[in-house]
Amino acid sequence: MKLITDNFLISFLQRFDEHPFDVKLHGKTHHIGEGNPTFLVNLKEDIGNNELITSTSLALGEAYMKGNLDIEGDLYQALDHFLGQMGKFSSDHSKLKKLMFSSQSKKNQEKEVTSHYDIGNDFYSLWLDDTMSYSCGYFKTEEDTLYEAQCNKVERILQKLCLKKDMTLLDIGCGWGYLLIRAAKEYGVNGVGITLSKEQKKIFDERIEAEGLTGKVSVELMDYRDLEKCGKTFDRVVSVGMVEHVGREHYELFVKNAEAVLKPGGLFLLHYISALKEYPGDPWMKKYIFPGGMVPSLREMIHILSDHQFYTLDVESLRRHYYKTLRLWERNFNENRPEIQEKMGAEFVRMWDLYLNACAATFHNGIIDLHQILVSKGVNNQIPMTRWY
């Protein structure tokens, strides 16, 4: 039975009663749910009523970042139980309009993207694997390492693209370049990557030279909206974890630009974080982790692709693979926590630890998904008829 207390925060938290936990505030412990508590929320000070109602996510996330809220027990387990009840969160979009719907101008989107990816290559190298892949891996077995899973993922994408020697491949949002380097070395393709991150381009250029791929692979600082007028066409196009940054109003523009540079009959593989339905996103995530980020639903991407005469060949969900990837990132992150905290500060470390664990929990609960969609520009009768070609 729910008990109404004279404290708004405790009364508010009682709605999250599917899994039992305790809340400690002002020296008093309150039990929520039925059964033995699996974790304890230790609040060093109260959280304002207006903050909780305006955005539960922002209010609790900021309290954790600042150390005003601590979890005694396993952080991931607490988030897995709590975020499975996100439908009970409060969010006043009228008050959060500027945060939730930021400018889609080139200048602002470049600023938003670089705010995340240009934190520093030293930072990312501390917890990513040697491929420097910052996207979902693919685990063929439970024993696969993070490095093996990232290699598996790239190979899976390249196989789906049916690459042949001397084909041209464009990677929209190429990251640090591992996919194109592997495509050039193993399949003999000529690759071009585009990114908005100067830090990523720096590492990619170094890798191209080190691998002896100068003239075979190149990377450019370019906005996807400039592809249509770049004057180039490609046999294949791939985009991994990039469309989430373009904004719902620009999904069609993104697809239109991919269509413009893909040759007739060419294949396009889109790998992206997806959702069951369309929603504007999480306020805390938009404010602190991915400004301007928006997760497309599977159905809206399929609809837009179809409008541009892209024929859907294959759709695959890798949701549980991303859950496992995030758990390994979080482990690596916390193994290097002292070094990261020395460089970035305690609040940054708590923010990123919360981000990695919260993402793992949302994938585990099916709040978000990961899909790979393979399409052809027009009809392609030359590719193999079976899926595992």
Rank of each mutant, 00 (worst) to 15 (best):
A260W: 04
K88V: 03
L146M: 09
R320P: 03
K24M: 11
K97G: 02
Q341D: 07
L370F: 08
S91M: 15
Y134N: 06
M301P: 03
G188H: 01
Y389C: 10
R182P: 02
K377G: 06
G241S: 03
E252M: 09
D307K: 15
G35A: 14
S103F: 04
V255S: 05
N49W: 13
C136T: 09
F123N: 03
T145H: 07
T214C: 14
D369F: 12
Q341K: 15
E316M: 07
I10R: 00
K44D: 07
V295R: 05
N257P: 00
S218C: 09
S57Q: 04
N36D: 11
F363W: 02
D223K: 02
I119Y: 05
F268D: 10
L326E: 04
S317I: 07
D22H: 03
A358Y: 09
N357T: 08
H271T: 07
F39C: 08
Y187H: 14
L99T: 01
V238C: 13
L270N: 15
R350M: 03
R156K: 12
S102P: 14
E143K: 15
E244A: 01
L179T: 13
K229W: 07
S55V: 04
S55T: 09
E62K: 09
K286T: 00
M132P: 00
F268T: 09
G87T: 08
K232F: 11
I47W: 01
V41N: 00
K107I: 09
Y272H: 13
Y251M: 01
I208F: 05
C151P: 00
Y311D: 12
L370S: 08
K164F: 09
A63P: 05
T56W: 08
L354F: 15
L179M: 11
G33P: 00
C136H: 04
K229F: 13
L328F: 06
L99W: 02
D205W: 05
T29Q: 01
F204M: 12
K97Y: 12
Q14L: 06
S115K: 14
D314R: 12
L126H: 08
L169W: 01
H364M: 14
I10D: 00
S125T: 11
F139N: 03
N108T: 11
D307Y: 08
M294T: 11
N50M: 10
E249W: 07
K28P: 05
Y147I: 11
N7P: 01
H321Y: 02
G366C: 10
G378W: 04
D70M: 13
K98M: 07
E45Y: 08
V237T: 07
R182V: 05
F333I: 03
G193M: 06
L328M: 13
A346C: 09
V237N: 08
Q109V: 05
T214I: 07
A149Y: 05
V315G: 06
I157Q: 02
F8L: 06
R327D: 05
P291G: 02
C136L: 01
